[in-house]
Design a protein around this nucleic acid. Sequence first.
RNA 1: GUCCCCAUCGUCUAGCCCGGCCUAGGACACCGGCCUUUCACGCCGGCGACGGGGGUUCGAAUCCCCCUGGGGACGCCA
Length: 464
Amino acid sequence: MSELRVRFAPSPTGYLHVGGARTALFNYLLARQSGGTFVLRIEDTDTERSTQESVDAILDGMAWLGMRPDEGPIYQSERFEHYKSKVQQLLDEGNAYRCYCTPEELDAKREAAMKAGEKPKYDGTCRNREDQPTGQAHVVRFKAPLDGETCFNDKIKGNICFQNTELDDLIIQRTDGTPTYNFVVVIDDAEMKINLIIRGDDHINNTPRQIQLYRALGYDVPEFAHVPMILGSDKKRLSKRHGATSVMAYRDMGYLPEALTNYLVRLGWSFGDEEIFAFGDLLEKFSLDNVGKSAGVFNPEKLLWLNAHWIKNGNSARLARLLKEYLDEKGVDTTDGPNLVMVVESLQERAQTMLEMADGAVFYFTPEVEFDPAAEEKFFKSETKPVLECCRKHLSALGDYNHDAIEGCMKAVMEELGLKFGKIGPVLRVALVGGTQSPSIYHVVEVLGKERVMARIERALTRF
RNA sequence: GUCCCCAUCGUCUAGCCCGGCCUAGGACACCGGCCUUUCACGCCGGCGACGGGGGUUCGAAUCCCCCUGGGGACGCCA
């Protein structure tokens, strides 16, 4: 096969959702691993519903996931004149005809057919019409073959055949002169030399019509690979009522792009028992051969687990930059706080999302921590005051605040007081973070540094 | 309703094409235990599936047929 050319062709009527992102990822991966070309085409022939905001949202989502098109975005709305000439070509060659039936008539016929238990399809009223009044409103329909069958060998689903009697004469140009999806998708894929079309399997039913169009237009028919749908927990097609479906919503919730990518590609595709795939692994291992045929249920828990994994194993400097963004969004000022990389390292193992990490990091940047009433009552009592005072004494004498030194310092406190760590750590923790949950206390002391630690102990001592 | 697609633990899946190695493997979730200064991480263990019925075969999760179930499409949306 010649160089692979694939495409992602979303319609800009909303944000980039996880289903679209997955098919885009499949296309992108295949292009990248074979040195092929990934084209982005915006299917905006529905001028009513297409918006620039949606185009931007889709571009943002793709950029966040790291997908850069090699060609495009190409806008179909800029090619209307060209499509018109193709309609004319079909008309001239007798492969299309004008249809004057009104939408109301069509609706009535459709309903009647449904009621009669038949497949609702255009009855061909105008197909053999002799007169062609020019001033009258009309659409243009493709003159589809009446018998025989149309088959294709899907790279994922295998051989699929449709009886041509099941298909009707589809509209290729609307009353307002704009072309329709099934028509332009064929022209563009053919002219952009797309040789493998990877898309959702809800397009399987459109494929035979499109193949007929390829033939009528004199184009080579490309290969197809129909990817199974993503379903919600109720096994219905995934939609907003199942929860977040927008790719960028996952960013906002604190997910890492590599986690979403890992999850989305793994959903419906597998490589033995492996679960963790970095982008490089996917490049090396992804193949259409291992894509399953059945639809898959979107499982937020597994995505969350993967996200925790990628946070745990992420580069702390990079995570620190990301954490700052989430902290900024929360209105937490990090300018005079402790070192962000150290903050990340203390929280990496216990955060499932970056948002969770940000929540857990707030105390580092809050000089006047808010004391949890229950914790305060339990640990700030007259008998624990000496404990905190002893911590103050030893920690103020300590010069180098590194983990081992701090641990040694606390040992000295334990020895002097004759107490176990369990009687000391919690008191110091409440004094430094305000509550009973935090990273290891040694880490907290180290990350905070001497100046902040001393200030917080002083402040806590006033609460007894 | 008609057409198309699909069918292994609750979920994602391995195994299926080239039947025996499957008393069906892994992962998420869940339950128990260990570790532990808190919360987590981690580790160990447990629960849990071949939709049903017919064939073919010495032998079927694997091959064939029917049924059932689920999904999708049926638009002057894409």
